[in-house]
């Protein structure tokens, strides 16, 4: 069973993980996302770029139903993960979010120890049978987030005591600890200095081996560096979506060209 899935995955490495069709999002009367179709491939990094307020973060939050926590927000259309409609009534948003992890713009470690921060997800979802397994998951997640060597001697000290870059990597470790299939990142580097940014970008590239990553970013250099596919949003519309190289070197839409050359923003 396990072998079959693995074999299956390699064969379809570039298969679509998420399919969105005709997605509309309303905040009260404000039409924030207008008829967006996107296919997000498995084990790739997809970047969402666009000027502020263009709806890229809103769309990202549709993918793990985080918009459900905002009472005035309404989502229409169809979003499928592995062919399953995530807005179906039978889907439990809480379970969905364990499969679709998220990292936020500002590092938001919980007021708990480093260990408890990472163990939070596995604990609430009952992913481990005993303490030893939990220890293992925590160590693996921290290693994946390239933080293990820095914090292994102080796992019991508070997560809020780390530096900004470390906090963000802790949040990434926390998100990967539940072994999600998709990792959503909402401007994960905007509160970080260049060195921490470089570390997180390197990390994103490594995470691609196991997850499909969707990253919202304001930095076009960052999109070009880390992503394989890029989607350009403008005023709630998906203007252009394609291979990152093509978007940056040979955009088809004049608005995309205007944005990446700095004429609109």
């Amino acid at each position: 069973m396990e072998d079959m899935r693995l074999a299956d995955r390699t064969a379809s490495a570039r298969e679509n993980k998420i399919t969105a069709r005709g997605v509309q999002v309303y905040y009260g009367t404000n039409h924030a996302i207008k008829d967006v179709d996107v296919d997000i491939a498995d084990r790739t990094v997809t970047a969402f770029i666009g000027p502020s307020g263009c709806g890229k973060s809103t769309f990202l939050r549709c993918l793990n139903r985080m918009n459900d926590t905002i009472p005035i927000c309404r989502v229409e259309g169809r979003i499928e993960i592995d062919g399953e409609d995530i807005y179906d009534k039978r889907v439990d948003p809480v379970q969905l979010r364990a499969r679709v992890g998220m990292v936020f713009q500002k590092p938001n470690p919980f007021p708990k120890s480093i260990y408890d921060n990472v163990a939070y997800g596995p604990r609430i979802h009952g992913l481990t049978r005993n303490r030893a397994e939990l220890d293992e998951v925590v160590e693996k997640s921290l290693r994946r987030a390239a933080l293990w060597n820095e914090v292994k001697d102080r796992l019991t000290s508070p997560g809020t005591g780390l530096s900004g870059g470390q906090q963000q990597r802790l949040c990434i470790a926390r998100a990967v600890a539940t072994s999600p299939e998709v990792l959503l990142m909402d401007e994960p580097c905007s509160a970080l200095d260049p060195i921490a940014t470089a570390q997180v970008e390197e990390l994103i590239d490594e995470l691609r081996e196991n997850f499909s990553v969707v990253i919202v970013t304001h930095s076009m250099q960052q999109a070009a560096r880390v992503s394989q596919r890029t989607a350009f949003f403008h005023l709630g519309n998906l203007v252009e979506f394609g291979e990152t190289g093509q978007i940056f070197t040979n955009p088809r839409d004049p608005r995309t060209e205007a944005y990446i050359t700095g004429r609109i923003g």
Binding site: V94, R97, M102, F104, Y120, G121, I124, C171, A175, T178
Partner: peptide
């Protein structure tokens, strides 16, 4: 609010 978002995003009720 970021703490709540963080917790919900991991799938906490």
């Amino acid at each position: 609010q970021s703490l709540r978002d963080g917790s919900f995003a991991i799938g906490a009720t």
